[in-house]
Design a protein around this nucleic acid. Structure first.
Lengths: 232, 232
DNA sequence: CGTACCGTTGAGGTGAGTCAAAGTAAGTGG
DNA sequence: CCACTTACTTTGACTCACCTCAACGGTACG
């Protein structure tokens, strides 16, 4: 949010107004931040911790599609779409959530084009749909999807270059399964495989990656489709 | 686009300016409207015909994720995301495409909040990600995914209520396959099944649906997951 | 020291992918 | 108008990755 403001030509008074409208709330693990089909009354930011966004369909198949990390926004899609929340946000860890009331956000967006443009950008760049291709594509085996997840989760904590790299996942096996559109059992098996091959060693939620390049290489481990079709 | 304008308080002069900046182009079947990784220089609208949006990954797996019909916009995501096109748009049928240069659109968006708000809405409501859950979810069998596609494609041409309903699909089997993340062979088998069960009779690209309710009922034909997990 | 999850492992079944080939429609040129 | 080419569609046989079901080990917590 601070980043959005810095790109705008908003005067100090309005910045203060926005910051004063903000409400911070501490959320416990597993607690919901907002629920699917509830009204979008404002914008949410994660100040610390991790949250998971998931969607439940007609008969309650739950599909996770995004891990929200510290500093990221959520709920903007339904806010600007003038619609109820399409997903539930649930805390993976204890976290601090900032809340900006709809009224203030929309007024400032109307008033300051540069602020609005920044939101346009965020909305348009929403990585959810694109990540989904990596994490949920059927033609990609579970093992590879898991590697993709590790690579995505590793963006923040850069490792000491090629050296060993340790990553702490914020979620349970079942959450990983939901993100990868797989079953927890399949995740366990993929984890075992990656460990045996020395690509990524899981110990509870801590993952040790001896060689980041070797992990990345897993991604290109495609079985050549030879489907020389033009359009597909 | 006309709808976006009508919701705005844009004066006549600017409406004219927008309309004069527009370029209309006739596109032949299979021709590309814009290509993945190319620069987004403007906004595209489909005046007539159908187009398909698809994304190709590192080693050329092609995944379709949206069918664009007449009156719909495309390319807005990369335009506002200030990024290259994330997908290729390809004509399924011959079609007329309107093109609005980036410069004019962005200027008007900056100037008229109500116009901007309308774009926010479109961007936020982009049905791509949500449809993807219906069309590409692994836990949903191909047969059901095909039914979902038929229901989505049927929005325009409403049938004479419960009576027989005929639908003409604009795309090839391989395009259906790409949309459903399946193989053309699997599509053929699902089509055969649906025909045998009298749910939807395919004849080339023409689909006859004897009973729309029966088709909808297919959607709830979920095998109960009994996965009583809370978070997944 | 149970109770309750979470995580792992094994055995078995299956939907959909792969490969190969035949059938069908759609252009193209003589 | 008919051979001929080309691309699309369908079918069958086979295989496999993943799901399902079930049982067991580990860890946390009252």
């Amino acid at each position: 949010m601070r980043e959005h403001i810095s790109y705008s030509d908003m005067p100090e008074a309005d910045v203060t107004r926005l910051e004063h409208s903000m409400i911070v709330r501490a959320i416990a693990r597993d607690e919901k931040i907002f629920a699917q089909n509830s009204e979008a009354t404002g914008l949410f930011c994660l100040r610390s911790g991790y949250a998971l966004l998931w969607h439940a369909d007609a008969f309650n198949h739950k599909t996770a599609f995004r891990v929200v990390g510290a500093g990221e926004m959520m709920g903007y899609r339904s806010l600007f779409g003038e619609d109820t929340h399409a997903a539930t946000a649930q805390a993976l860890t204890t976290c601090d959530v900032c809340y900006y009331p709809k009224k203030v956000v929309l007024e400032l967006v109307d008033e300051f084009p540069s602020f609005a443009r920044r939101f346009f950008r965020t909305l348009a760049r929403d990585r959810g749909p694109r990540d989904a291709l990596l994490l949920r594509g059927q033609h990609i085996p579970v093992r590879t999807r898991l590697v993709n997840l590790l690579l995505l989760m590793n963006t923040d904590k850069a490792c000491p270059d090629n050296d060993t790299c340790v990553l702490k996942l914020p979620m349970l096996r079942r959450d990983i399964a939901a993100l990868l559109a797989a079953r927890p059992e399949s995740i366990a098996r993929a984890i075992k495989e990656l460990g045996q091959d020395g690509i990524a060693i899981f110990n509870g939620r801590t993952v040790t990656i001896p060689n980041l390049d070797a992990l990345s290489a897993e991604t290109n481990r495609e079985q050549l489709p030879l489907n020389n079709s033009v359009t597909v």
